[in-house]
Design a protein around this nucleic acid. Structure first.
Lengths: 203, 203
DNA sequence: GAAATATCATAACGATCGTTACGATAATTT
DNA sequence: AAATTATCGTAACGATCGTTATGATATTTC
């Protein structure tokens, strides 16, 4: 019963993702959002709730639509391939769209007013989940002999995270894909190797 | 002639630095600034100009008061010591003050509205200067045999920058100093060595 | 002591922020 | 066809944004 929606909610959310990606949570106004989506303010509120709820949905969409390389990387056979796939995919993603460089998960809300604190926490938590997931994957690698017994998986995961975040900052500053790939390569240059056949160095 | 200032301009600027450090450029309001400095709005305008000019002066102050370890690092004898000093000093600085973690140079203005574009550019330029200065220092190291002929100094400088920026993001997320130091250590494990006596490996 | 001047706090400026009444419009139900 | 209901665009809400006009206050100069 009642009138039908005149816009596609999924399509609007995709456009919203792009806006937040470029300007961050607090940098985006509803004027920006209506302009990008072609949807008036009240319709956005009716479809997504308030700005915070909208951003959370945009973040979820961002993860599933753009950060899908991350869970995919976890499936790769060796820890080095996992790390390499993450870093190079990020280098590509962060420079894929000239109008929205870098990573929504990083500059969506790094600093800001106190009002943005819940969003900042949400992004921190999301990144922590990713890092924990990588750490677990590396622990598995250690058990498989793909990483040495001495390897500190938590540190390695944090290191990959740091390079990842740093590349996002650099991408936002205009670094080319090539330059980011060189950074990724350097980061990978001393990835520890175990004694398993998985590493491809023995046998 | 005329009335005297009732506040210390240098002291006020120090307080302003802390506010921008915590909330970033656009996240700071003049209510925040008067609260932190004890100086009313018109007095801040009279002493520093508008918000953008104030931030630029705060950034300069930040560099000379907190990022002094960077030029100091350039004086160290080996490229590895240079990189190590930068990374460990950053890990310390980014976690030194619980009320303002991370780095003003990073989250002062990563993303935001179009109005903040000049400030974003200023931060990007400032970081680029630092990276270029590091690259030049590494070029010198190469000439001294402290780095191998094959070393790509621009890439190494960008890599140090990426880890630096990534640590700033992680510090803002609450990472401990120990964890950041572990990241720095991992980053340094990729550091190439030359054949000079400087490296301390030969001779 | 009187005139001149720079800084002070108060209070307001127009613009924009996120959010929402409101009446018109279109679709469904009886 | 009439009644109901959800969505539409317009227009406005109070709050806050960065910025500044204004008059009182304090200091210096004549």
């Amino acid at each position: 019963m009642g009138r039908n929606r005149e816009f596609d909610v999924d399509q609007a959310l995709d456009a919203v993702v792009c806006v937040f990606w470029r300007k961050g949570y607090e940098g985006v106004s509803y004027t920006d959002l209506t302009q990008a989506t072609g949807v008036e303010r009240p319709a956005l509120y009716s479809a997504f709730g308030n700005k915070e709820a909208l951003f959370r949905q945009a973040l979820t969409r961002y993860y599933e639509r753009y950060l899908d390389f991350f869970p995919a990387a976890m499936e790769l056979p060796t820890s080095r391939e996992v790390a390499a796939h993450i870093l190079f995919s990020a280098a590509e993603l962060h420079t894929r769209y000239p109008d929205r460089k870098g990573c929504l998960g990083i500059h969506g809300a790094l600093a800001g007013s106190d009002d943005a604190e819940p969003i900042r926490r949400a992004l921190i938590d999301a990144r922590a989940i990713g890092e924990a997931s990588l750490r677990d994957r590396l622990e598995r690698a250690k058990q498989e002999g793909d990483l040495p017994e001495t390897a500190n998986c938590a540190t390695l995961a944090a290191f990959v995270g740091a390079v990842l975040h740093g590349m996002a900052v650099q991408a936002k500053a205009g670094f080319s894909r090539d330059k980011l790939e060189a950074v990724a390569e350097q980061a990978l240059s001393t990835w520890p190797t175990g004694n398993s056949t998985l590493s491809g160095k023995s046998s």
